[in-house]
Design a protein around this nucleic acid. Structure first.
Length: 493
RNA sequence: GGCGGCAUAGCCAAGUGGUAAGGCAACGGCCUGCAAAGCCGCUAUUCUCCAGUUCGAAUCUGGAUGCCGCCUCCA
């Protein structure tokens, strides 16, 4: 099994990854609160952990991956009142939308996707343990966690309570013993979803659901807990306090947090009104372009989403698919991604091994994608060469063919781990055309007719006329390419 | 006020002690009727600045400057 290192937010160092149970990985990632559509920031987090999940699986771990939905919460309640929907149906609507968006981005479904509302009895049981052990106290139907009772509160976020008190500038509930005490159970107001509890009717606070669901599916102690950087405080800090106070074990071995997405150098925020929703972005850019763009940055670094950057990424993805198309012709069909990949002959670079090296180093997808492009250039070079000296690929001299197949298999395997290159080249270019035609109202039949006209002119050696047609197409944002077997066209993005 | 991060070519981005991956863009060449695509070459004697440690620093230490995030719901 590969030696993987990963950055642990708790220790702030890269550590060698060694799961609690050898060969098995238990990971929990905080999913969305389902009160609105998903934005590009959700996409990043979900895609980052999707790739981690895919990679760990690819190197042989049996991974149990849990990603929850928060389906009871103030924001959901407020929004449902605004829209005149029940909180349940609002949550359902956005869970469906989340699935639709993420499926569209090639995100695999986790092993389990539990809902907070399905775990109320267990949540109550944990709160009771915390009250019994003296970590929590009830006040008028609410229950609070007492942060001073838990030694080590603030360890993950690097804060200590006395420092924070100086900076506290929110209105403090007078019933709290400490301003940083947080609510485990909230008493119900009229018209709110609620459940019976020892403290009266109410609903869980935000943090406790993750302690309950992770315990249910992964146990009191598990390997990887992930989420966006912003969740470090207070959410994950509070989860640690609850779970470790209740169960007396180290909650999580490795904490993994992804960085944020900025839009045109600005933070996404409600006040700036620059939230980019996934459902809108996919109208502009191919889903695999979005994935490739996000994965071209290290997961902990911030990412700046700009049109220019996405267009550049699109050019890169085109290049990879163009190679696949070339390979398909050359090999007479693409290799299946599951094909056994042989080790490259001596003297050939083992791109897949280099790719794994990059991924083993804290899931460095940016570097791994560098390897992918190296492999693309290498294969293009080989194909240039092979096409010039056709004898190379004959049955009498099959060596180059094996090398090309191996490198091709490696590229598809890399794509599989990154959740890219899932389409046939034709499928990819066609979907791009369709997307562009919807937007720019170009007519395929008209373009084909113009290309036919140009071919006729070329045949008649009327190159002036041929070039004029090409210029005309260019003005329509259509670029053409003359190939030995005919002329193809694409929309310039 | 507290905690943390970042600064690498025209742009994006890897690289955490051994002499600067990769992508996009530009330019020159091969190829082509001309293009496009692809390939080759070229593009940072140098990594914000200053000082230090070291045989050796983009990488470590100290300082300066600039930008950013968290501390309130937030991926």
């Amino acid at each position: 099994m590969n030696r993987i290192t990963l950055y642990n937010s708790m220790t702030r160092t890269k550590e060698v990854f060694a799961p609690i149970t050898p060969g098995q990985v238990k990971m929990y990632v905080c999913g969305p609160t389902v009160y609105d559509s998903c934005h590009i920031g959700h996409a990043r987090s979900v895609i980052v952990f999707d790739v981690i999940y895919r990679y760990l699986t690819a190197v042989g771990y049996k991974v149990t991956y849990v990603r929850n939905f928060t389906d009871v919460d103030d924001k959901i309640i407020n929004r449902s009142h605004e829209l005149g929907l029940s909180p349940e149906s609002l949550a359902k609507k956005y869970i469906d939308e989340f699935h639709h968006d993420m499926d569209g981005l090639n995100v695999l479904r986790p092993t389990l996707e539990p809902l907070a509302t399905e775990h109320i009895p267990h949540i109550i049981a944990i709160i009771e343990i915390l009250v019994d052990k003296g970590y929590a106290y009830a006040a008028d139907g609410d229950v609070f966690f007492s942060v001073t009772a838990f030694e080590g509160y603030g360890r993950l976020s690097g804060r200590n309570l006395s420092d924070m008190e100086a900076g506290a500038r929110i209105e403090v509930d007078p019933r709290k013993k400490n301003p940083f005490d947080f609510v485990l159970w909230k008493s119900a107001k009229p018209n709110e979803p609620s459940w019976d509890s020892p403290w009266g009717r109410g609903r869980p606070g935000w943090h406790i659901e993750c302690s309950a669901m992770s315990k249910d599916y992964l146990g009191a102690s598990f390997d990887i807990h992930g989420g966006g950087k912003d969740l470090i405080f207070p959410h994950h800090e509070n989860e640690i306090a609850q779970s470790e106070a209740a169960f007396g074990q180290t909650f999580v071995k490795y904490w993994v947090h992804n960085g944020f997405v900025n839009i045109n150098h600005e933070k996404m925020s409600k006040s700036l009104g620059n939230f980019l929703m996934i459902k809108d972005i996919v109208k502009e850019y191919h889903p695999e372009v979005i994935r490739l763009f996000l994965l071209s940055h290290h997961y902990r670094s911030p990412v700046d989403f700009t049109d220019q950057a996405l267009r550049n990424t699109g050019a890169g993805l085109d290049k990879i698919y163009a190679l696949l198309e070339r390979l398909e012709k050359y090999l007479g069909g693409l290799l299946d991604k599951n094909t056994e990949i042989s080790v490259p002959p001596a003297g050939e670079r083992d791109f897949l091994a280099l790719f794994y090296d990059a991924m083993n180093d804290d899931f460095n997808t940016a570097q791994a994608i560098g390897v992918l492009f190296d492999a693309v250039r290498h294969l293009n070079r080989r194909l240039d060469h092979a096409e010039k000296s056709a004898s190379e690929a004959t049955p009498e001299n099959p060596e180059p063919l094996v090398e090309i197949q191996t490198a091709c298999g490696a590229i598809l395997k890399m794509g599989d781990i990154l959740g890219l290159l899932t389409l046939s080249p034709q499928g990819y270019f066609n979907s791009k055309k369709e997307r562009a035609m919807d937007r720019q109202a170009v007519d395929a039949a008209e373009i084909d007719a113009m290309i036919a006209q140009r071919q006729a002119a070329r045949k008649a050696k009327d190159f002036g006329q041929a070039d004029a047609i090409r210029d005309q197409l260019k003005e329509m944002n259509i670029e053409i390419e003359d190939r030995p077997d005919g002329t193809i066209w694409r929309v310039i993005s």
